[in-house]
Design a protein around this nucleic acid. Sequence first.
RNA 1: GACCCUAUCGUCUAGUGGUUAGGACACCGCCCUUUCACGGCGGCGGCACGGGUUCGAAUCCCGUUAGGGUCGCCA
Length: 440
Amino acid sequence: MSVSTVRTRFAPSPTGMLHIGGARTALFNWLFARHHRGKFILRIEDTDAARNTQEATDIITRGLSWLGLHWDEGPEVGGSYGPYYQSQRSGIYEAYLTKLLQNGSAYHDQDGTVRFRIPRESITVYDIICGHPTFDLKEEPDITLRRKDGSFIFHFVNVVDDIEMKITHVIRGEDHLSNTPKHIALYRALGATPPAYAHIPLILNPTGSKMSKRDQGASLADYMAQGYLPEAITNYLCLLGWSPGENREIFDLDLAVERFDLQHVNHSNARFDIDKLYWINGEKMRALTPERLLRFALPILQDAGLVSENTPRERVLGALQLVREKIKLGRDLPSWCSYLLKDDFAFDPEARAKHLDNPESRKLLASLHESYSKLDDWNASALEQTLKTLAEQLGVKVGALVHPCRVALTGRTIGPSLYHLLEYLGKEESLRRFKRVLDD
RNA sequence: GACCCUAUCGUCUAGUGGUUAGGACACCGCCCUUUCACGGCGGCGGCACGGGUUCGAAUCCCGUUAGGGUCGCCA
């Protein structure tokens, strides 16, 4: 039990995207902080002012918010150790640099840059995940701290900010492990105690190398756009290198917070498996409460022009309930809901040719139309009973009635439970759609 | 090239000296079923290799191999 409060941070550079690997780093930092009832800090590493815009920062904050990873200190929320943008902290860096210059740990080189005098010794990193690798810095070139134009380099500002912001645990990608001994040397030169380190394994692309910005699926925004659920993303990301035990694969953030533990984070890199994420998304989709389902789907259906301000929410929710268990992604919603929310849907030519454009099918459909016209009790089980009875009377298989019926109602061969579909559309609309086909 | 990390089914993982090596995704069958899904049942498939240590190694040690990462006035 540590006396001091755990403080972790996610320190992304605003590059214009929130990388999926960055999202997982943020997630693990967040989980660790929450598990220990500590603080999770968001710090924007925008030292390269020219390239960084407000928009690029917004992409990060929007992404984290969407995932449900709220920060205790940082942009938008403030905090006692701000500012939380490196571009606004030059004064602090200058002061620390002066200190290094004065105690002889740093020097100006011929080009006008300031460099750190790397101690010619071995430094051991005590890492919660990777053990304690020792690095020999004998051959290591002195690192640059400040460019000749006055701007600072990552290694330096990163360390200074972690000291200033009282970060207790640095949880970051394993690609930083080799940099860590230099950071520790910097801490020592500054008279500060290094934090605890935990280098988490990398997320690899399906080919097996570090997932880069250019890789398909590297940007969180893509998943948001395709209609993945944030809880599916966080669930999947947790599974990449960590497991809650008991063979549990589907769980929420609360459970992860309760059980998260850096000691049990894997040592080896993991490949990103979109199929599994896809599966998890389906699981989460089916588990959504009606309210969440509606909130999630409404903007998608509105964008697709299927729902307007005036569409009764009951009607939308009914359609969603009908199709939600058939699909896995939000982006599939419009196509599956189209014939439920409007009647001018397109007919799949193949479906039409096979199930409607022949005398036999039309005859059967006409019979069904007649039977259903006489049905007053318009509910799924009565509809089913009626159809089955008719099939028996006509001496045909149930499918012979079902398929033309489905195509007449939806224009395609696959879709939700037919009887529930009929119930949802209502008698008047269902008969109208039959008639439309029969009169054609 | 040097240094560092890693190594269980195709993929993600459980496993911390004694298990018929468990689960999940994917894949393949069968069942359920009006379609598509869901669900159920079954199958395929793994401890990289070689040495040790031990009565006994997936588990510990060494080596080999393989993969990844880092060696910037990028972060």
